[in-house]
Amino acid sequence: MSTPWPELDYFGWRDTCSALHLYLQVAGKYRLAHTPWVNHSWHATFYVTPRGLTSSLIPDGPGIEILFDLHEHQVVGTAGDGHTASFPLRPMTVAEFHTDFCGLVSDLGGSPKFDGQPNELPNPVPFTKDHRDRPYDRDAVRRYHRALVSIDRVFKTFRTSFLGKCSPVHLFWGSFDMAVTRFSGRRAPLHGGGIPALPDDVAQEAYDREVSSAGFWPGGGGIEYPAFYAYAYPAPDGFRFAPVQPDAAFWHEGMSEFILPYDAVQAAEDGDAALLAFLQSTYEAAADLGQWDRDLLECRRGRPSIVRPTDALTNPDTR
């Protein structure tokens, strides 16, 4: 039987990971160009499915969904009129992927018009000019997807114990992180921007409310191993010194976030419980130090087939 927390060797699949990130950026920029803006860029994200990552329905042409099938290793487009088109994920250049992707959208009756520059990467190379040969490690991609399925399960469980505004569990193709974010309901100070290859107004809109956010990176961007993260914006006084769980979690000074290495979850006797402890303890630190109205915002963690009791507002049980 396969473990729900597969081993992830970032250095072993780093180049494939970078390639998959850029391929998702191409598809993400297409979705971004054709989808009305939703708060905090939620309209541009991808979602985990049993087979890979989906864009959900994009309002272009007859309506188009893009699926990165990480089991059969292909990009599959499905149109609202029933037509499908696909091409294989394989060793290729980003420019080749861009050409194949635009052809797929055209075949489905869509308009492949979108910005051709990557976001949130230093020194971005336009998609059509990126001719570097990139590998494609099928086994590593499958392990990454299996990890995402487990992460999606735990993040969604964590999400159930919050009554306030909360993001979907989704993957941002810009920074290539899977995230879930809770909101206090209060406005936040204007964000300073400065994120590489991302307009300041996008970052400022994303952080215009107080947040406690957690997520997962496969590696890169200052963390050369797969890891979970948690941060608050604005970070309340004393946040970095808050006690968090499990023992493997720590405050990363350079990134100003709590970090939990994926390996600690993968090696834990109960990986789900270890990750839930990290999510809950970092949120509680942000909420308590930030003086969130927890009685109003929280409820008992959801259980299958059991309606949330009406007294959960005043008697939250997140065990």
Results as ranks from 00 to 15, higher is better:
104 L>Q: 08
293 D>C: 09
117 Q>K: 15
19 A>F: 05
134 R>F: 07
265 V>G: 01
263 D>K: 13
14 R>D: 14
3 T>M: 05
308 R>G: 06
242 A>C: 09
315 N>Q: 07
21 H>T: 07
147 A>Q: 07
273 A>C: 11
164 G>R: 03
284 E>S: 09
289 L>F: 07
215 G>E: 04
249 A>H: 00
302 G>F: 12
92 M>A: 14
207 Y>A: 06
218 P>K: 06
156 K>W: 03
37 W>F: 08
238 G>T: 06
47 Y>Q: 13
186 R>P: 00
72 E>R: 12
313 L>P: 01
302 G>K: 08
124 P>I: 14
66 I>G: 02
168 P>H: 08
80 G>Y: 10
276 L>E: 03
149 V>C: 10
254 G>T: 05
94 V>P: 00
97 F>M: 11
58 I>K: 01
213 S>K: 02
103 G>E: 15
297 L>Y: 07
12 G>R: 02
91 P>A: 11
4 P>V: 15
219 G>T: 02
205 E>G: 13
178 M>L: 11
95 A>C: 05
112 P>V: 05
220 G>T: 03
253 E>G: 10
164 G>V: 01
6 P>S: 09
24 L>F: 03
66 I>K: 00
20 L>V: 10
71 H>W: 15
291 Q>V: 07
50 P>S: 13
280 Q>T: 12
31 R>K: 13
92 M>K: 09
294 R>I: 14
209 R>V: 12
160 T>D: 06
58 I>L: 05
181 T>M: 11
307 V>S: 14
19 A>R: 03
202 V>R: 08
131 H>D: 14
105 V>Q: 00
167 S>M: 05
234 P>A: 15
80 G>Q: 06
87 F>W: 08
84 T>H: 08
113 K>R: 04
137 D>Q: 04
232 A>Y: 02
189 P>K: 08
313 L>G: 15
290 G>A: 04
8 L>V: 08
66 I>S: 01
282 T>A: 10
65 E>Y: 09
187 R>P: 04
186 R>E: 08
110 G>N: 01
228 F>C: 05
79 A>K: 04
160 T>L: 03
144 Y>C: 09
84 T>F: 07
140 A>M: 04
255 M>P: 02
231 Y>I: 03
288 D>S: 14
29 K>A: 14
66 I>M: 03
271 G>W: 00
190 L>G: 11
194 G>F: 10
174 G>A: 11
129 K>I: 09
178 M>F: 12
107 D>M: 15
